[in-house]
């Protein structure tokens, strides 16, 4: 068994499941949004604002922002652990990988918080 302290759930099954659940959630959301846009092609700003300001859409958008953050972190963690290894970066691999993972984690957190501010007001 290989332990890992930077993966999302410290456990392969947990990460795998989260990645799939968030992917399904995102797919459903984007199909719904595409459908809404097709059905409301001529919608003006006020209609859009009312639609996005409804409690249902605020909750859905919050879930989507969290899903994107979780999905992105799980996926990019895999990318960094695949490609930033001792084979490519020698002895400095762990330091480089940790640095890049911290940058990704920081950006993901900022985007998620920024998204929440947009959805719930204040930005």
């Amino acid at each position: 068994m290989t332990t890992s302290v930077t993966s999302l759930g410290r456990n392969g099954l947990h990460d795998w499941l989260l990645q799939r659940v968030t992917a399904v959630l995102l797919a459903v959301y984007f199909i719904f949004m595409a459908g809404w846009l097709v059905c409301n092609g001529g919608a003006d700003y006020l209609t859009w604002k009312a639609f996005m300001g409804s409690a249902c859409m605020q909750i859905a958008n919050t879930l989507v922002f969290f899903s994107i953050a979780i999905h992105a972190w799980a996926g990019l963690w895999i990318v960094t652990t695949d490609y930033i290894t001792r084979m490519q970066f020698g002895d400095s691999a762990t330091r480089v990988r940790l640095l890049i993972q911290l940058v990704i984690a920081g950006l993901t957190l900022v985007y998620a918080l920024w998204g929440l501010l947009m959805i719930w007001g204040g930005a």
């Binding site: 068994m1 290989t2 332990t3 890992s4 993966s7 410290r10 456990n11 392969g12 099954l13 990460d15 795998w16 895999i78 652990t81 695949d82």
Partner: peptide, 12 residues
């Protein structure tokens, strides 16, 4: 199964 539950052994 307990030995396969980490992010690498199987889930890679």
């Amino acid at each position: 199964l307990a030995k396969l539950d980490d992010p690498f052994s199987l889930f890679r």
